[in-house]
Computed example of a mutant assay.
Amino acid sequence: MIHITARLHQDDNGAAHVAIYATDPDHAASSEPSPFPCGVLTMSPAAGAELVARVQAGESEQTITPEQAAHVLWHFDATGGMEPGSFTQALITTIASADRTNMLRMAAIYPGYVGACNLAQNHEDGIRVLQGLARQMLVPAPQDGGEHRG
């Protein structure tokens, strides 16, 4: 699992700079974040503080949505895939062909797609896991008290 951390720094002009750090304990000698950020974003102090809080709360942890799973399955020509739009197709192609350093950089912004590509490419049962996630798109949500009405 890729871990993402963020640190907030404010400059003399009042702008916030959020440094994004990503580590992949499965492929690194240490589980400590790199001393060098994989990205720096400049924003208002309030927006920077909100982003850091969201990262610290784990909101950007690798969570793969059913739609992301279906898009990645389509890319790998697997059953259960759904064709994404042209931007998402290019994004998945880029992620799937990226080296570890660039994949970690993209994980800071697109954790679900990076996680799904990682499953498809590096885990024996990754396609099966993604197919299970993608199937969730086909299950109708329960209505009125949690019962499904067929």
Rank of each mutant, 00 (worst) to 15 (best):
H3T: 02
S44L: 12
M103G: 09
G58T: 08
Y113D: 01
W74N: 14
M106A: 08
A28P: 03
G126I: 01
I127C: 03
L41T: 00
E50T: 04
F76E: 01
A19Q: 09
Q10G: 12
R149M: 11
A69G: 09
A19E: 14
A46D: 12
P140W: 02
I64R: 03
Q136S: 05
I20T: 10
G14S: 06
R54V: 07
L130T: 03
L41M: 13
S97I: 07
M106I: 05
E50L: 00
A69E: 09
T94W: 03
I2A: 00
P35A: 06
Q10L: 15
S86C: 10
D77M: 06
R105I: 04
S44G: 15
N118H: 12
V129H: 07
S34L: 08
G115C: 02
P33N: 09
A29R: 12
V40P: 10
E67Y: 07
V114G: 06
C117Q: 07
G126W: 03
I2R: 00
A46M: 08
A107N: 13
T101A: 15
M1A: 09
S30L: 06
E59V: 01
N122E: 14
A120F: 10
Q121P: 06
R149L: 15
G81Y: 03
L73S: 09
Q136H: 05
Q56C: 13
E147S: 14
Y113M: 01
A69K: 09
Q89D: 02
A16S: 12
N118F: 12
